[in-house]
Design a protein around this nucleic acid. Structure first.
Lengths: 210, 210
DNA sequence: GTCTATAAATAGATAGAC
DNA sequence: GTCTATCTATTTATAGAC
């Protein structure tokens, strides 16, 4: 076996630490110094492995959008019904978010900044995801399963509740902790079930049971 | 008339400039220097009118959450049906977002940061909004108009699509501009109509027409 | 590959004149 | 109320020894 190519442990630690930092403090707020400290490596190593702060950020975005896109592509390639695909899509999105705690904060901030740190490569990864979901919906419209909903409205009606609910967890916890609002817990099955039901109702041509 | 109390133009300019800066670059990314330059005042004036960067940020949040909360409180106090209140609520939320371009970016970033810059006062304003919406939904459940949806899931299913759709506008524009995805325009009526229909379907006990 | 040391720029904040 | 000048800490980034 030529080229075993063991990935250096330092590089991975940098990526992991940077993801945490960027998620917690945003692009501008994240400090290269703090990333180095968290990764327990010397700051100079970051500039050894990456071209700079922006290149490091871009690498993280790639590592998160690529596997999510692959998962959705696999669902789209199925020959299941369009609504079964939407169910699977919602489940996959929830899994993607829950398996990568830094994904959502980074995504939301990036949108808030108008995609200021997104290069062409990253936009292609985002567009791919968007087009895959749009394709599933378009198929459903073609077969009469779905009403003709605007693709961007449908997309963000799928993503929005999941993203905002998960992202709001810390603030909700503080609201509950301070006794300002009473927010019963929601487990994963309850969340995914709600999102699937809401999605089905949103896309339904005529109202359907439950 | 005692106390005409003309608000100093400088203070307002600082608030306006700071809102733009915080929305564009986030709390950590915003620079007091840049805020001063944008407001066309001297940096020292910011420290004359406010206790510091955080106090300035808090003042902006208050200026945005207070009127939105008032608008929703007015809707909740109506004796309209619960579903009519939801329609009005969605419309008011869309108006709040569109009238204050800096509101959404700041909100989304703050959630991404776990509410790190939210003091008790701000959390009270946020909780008030949440409780008002929760109250409208609870009323609808009580009268049999709505299904018993978890209040937090319902809340973020109302807010999420609006927030993500509006916040994603710059990224969507870049996707379209680069030819990566084709995103037809959506006008305000179309957006609000979609959100209202989706909300009605989400909350419906049994599926209803259109 | 990993480190120390440091450059060069910029940050938030303040003192003090007017 | 508004300004200039400046302090101190921190920032991204690099040079160079090992």
């Amino acid at each position: 076996m030529p080229e075993p190519r063991r990935a250096p442990a330092s590089r991975d630690r940098i990526l992991q630490a940077a993801a945490v930092e960027f998620a917690a403090r945003g692009y501008a707020g994240a400090g290269v110094d703090r990333i180095a400290r968290r990764a327990r490596i010397n700051k100079a190593m970051i500039y050894y492995y990456f071209d700079g702060k922006l290149a490091l950020y871009t690498a993280i975005l790639r590592d998160v959008y690529l596997p999510v896109g692959d998962a959705v592509a696999a669902i789209a390639a199925t020959d299941a019904s369009a609504s079964a695909k939407i169910d699977a899509l919602v489940d996959a999105m929830a899994r993607a978010v829950d398996e990568r705690p830094h994904f959502l904060p980074i995504l939301m901030r990036e949108m808030a900044e108008g995609g200021a740190h997104l290069g062409r490569d990253t936009l292609l990864l985002i567009g791919r995801l968007f087009n895959l979901v749009g394709g599933i919906i378009a198929d459903g419209v073609r077969t009469g399963e779905f009403a003709a909903v605007h693709p961007a409205l449908a997309y963000f009606s799928l993503i929005g509740p999941l993203a905002m609910f998960r992202a709001s967890a810390p603030v909700r916890a503080r609201l509950t902790g301070l006794g300002i609002a009473r927010l019963p817990d929601v487990d994963r099955d309850m969340l995914v079930g709600h999102l699937q039901t809401t999605a089905r109702r949103m896309l339904a041509v005529a109202p359907e049971p439950s």
